[in-house]
């Protein structure tokens, strides 16, 4: 059994290493796109949440609550089937649909990260800036944000780690990520455990080394304060 296991792994790796490698690439690409645009839209939602215009803040709060309160897999299905119908003229590829769904999901989480990062800045900082005569925007840009960034960046790194794992759900639509590589190998070699173990180890190596990097970076940020 164990002899077989070992040799099966070797066989799967020698035959399909290219597929696994491509899977790593696509998983990382998906994650990067997700967090990159998630950061942009999440920050916008965080600002909207703080808006004095009630309709704007209510919309942002509703968005965050609904996205965070429903399963990602459901959102993936929904947008995967809905987007092409909603935007037929755009001719969205399935990869694009999955990306959009992931961005929509991640934006809600980033929104909370940004909000928490801003809230963690001592309110005395903003007060001091306001008493000097800075307006709200100047206070945000020059005093609060530069300090909030130090809370936000490590949390964004952790979001990236989370997203790496979550993109596995996108394999439902065979977008070529790591989990898709597993499914392909399973289908052609009639093996389940071996490719799963391979893919599992790759995921772990990715997330573990990233987490280590982030905590190192975080310690550096802390030390500079």
């Amino acid at each position: 059994m164990f002899v077989n296991f070992g040799s099966n792994i070797v066989r799967a790796l020698t035959k399909y290493w290219g597929l696994f490698l491509e899977g790593v690439g696509i998983t990382l690409l998906l994650s990067f796109i997700t967090v990159f645009f998630g950061t942009i839209f999440g920050s916008i939602f965080a600002l909207m949440r703080r808006s004095r215009i009630k309709a704007v803040s209510v919309f942002a709060i509703g968005y965050v609550e609904v996205i965070r309160g429903t399963p990602l897999l459901l959102q993936l299905y929904l947008f995967y089937f809905m987007l092409p119908e909603l935007l037929p003229f755009m001719n969205l590829s399935k990869f694009a649909c999955v990306c959009i769904a992931l961005v929509i999901n991640s934006s809600a989480y980033v929104c909370e990260i940004v909000r928490a990062g801003i809230q963690a800045v001592d309110p005395g900082q903003a007060e001091a800036a306001r008493t000097l005569g800075l307006n709200g925007r100047q206070t945000m840009l020059r005093i609060v944000m530069p300090q909030a960034i130090k809370n936000i960046l490590p949390a964004l790194g952790n979001e990236f780690v989370t997203v790496i794992k979550e993109t596995s759900l996108a394999s439902t639509f065979f977008v070529g990520d790591l989990m898709t590589a597993y499914a392909t190998v399973r289908g052609s070699m009639y093996l389940v455990i071996e490719p799963l173990v391979i893919v599992g180890i790759i995921y772990f190596v990715l997330t573990f080394s990233l987490s280590k990097l982030i905590s190192k970076f975080e310690r550096r940020l802390k030390a500079s304060d």
Binding site: A128, A129, L132, G133, L134, N135, Q147
Partner: peptide
Amino acid sequence: NLHRQKMGMVFQHFNVFPH
């Protein structure tokens, strides 16, 4: 904001800008 420029304020917890 214009009037606040003419009123300096000092707080118990200093609130100097650490960055």
